[in-house]
Amino acid sequence: MPAYLLGRLGSALLVVLGAATIVFLAMRAIPGDPAVVMLGVSATPEQVAALRADWGLDAPLPVQYLNFLTRMVVLDFGQSIRLGMPAMQAVSQTLPYTIYLALVAFALALLVGFPLGVFSALQRGKAADKLISLFSLAGQSLPSFWVGIMLVLLLSRTLHILPSGGAGSPEAVLLPAVTLALPLLSVIVRLVRSGLLESMGEPYIQTARAKGLGETRVVGVHGVRNMLIPVVTVVGLELGTLLGGAVIVETVFAWPGLGRLLIDSIAARDYAVVQASVVMLVLFFVSINIVVDLLYGVLDPRVRVDG
């Protein structure tokens, strides 16, 4: 087990390193000089060169890269040129908003998606099942920004029930969370439905019935417990997509999270903040994956490493 975990951590580190490298190179490859963005097009080449030297952008690329990597180890990504504070500080101010939004969306997706999937499976072929299938198909295929705008138009502009953006009131999280949750919720509905139908067709379900257990227990314990294995695997992977989706949803709803910070920082060519945000997002992503992996072993005794 420790050997397995070590290997897992090793590959996770490689992923983080790879992502850091890509974002480092990508930022420097896209057109647009941060100094020019800051000073405006009327600035003289001397002014631009001076500012670049200030930020250490005049050093050769390999030197910049090594600097970036060595300081990354202690989570120091340098100074934000746009915000005038350490990049990590900007990230740690916005990250809680993103985590909060993602958690609310995740809880929503689970709490609604799971029962809906079970219900759909039990109603297989009936009208309710078909309706739910249609709903989850739509939820998976409609783009988040469109759903978000529709929700704003309906619930904020027309009905005035919920605020359209910002994080000013406790209920402000609802619209972005629903928008963010919808694709994951739909995936969960479909996975739970098909997983439960599959496990309900297994012979051990007949064994459970032959033991005289009530149908609630047969489905709720013997069926659901086996269905959890595929569901947890995919949901774990989809959590990463949830973080990705947050970038879009935060922009639509003006939610002050890491996603919006990232978009704004890319526009300003704020290298330090972009690098910090991406590395932190990737760190989150790989941590979730490791947790899911471990959970998989807990759920399925057949893959558990003995001893």
């Binding site: 012979p203 064994t207 459970a208 005289g212 257990l213 086996n226 294995i229 759920l299 057949r302």
Partner: peptide, 23 residues
């Protein structure tokens, strides 16, 4: 069903799949 288990028991053909793998 209430009689199943207590009054009537059943043994199935394939013991590899008749037991729930996760318990």
């Amino acid at each position: 069903r209430r009689l199943c288990g207590t009054e009537m028991g059943m043994v199935f053909q394939d013991p590899l799949t008749a037991l729930n793998p996760v318990f």
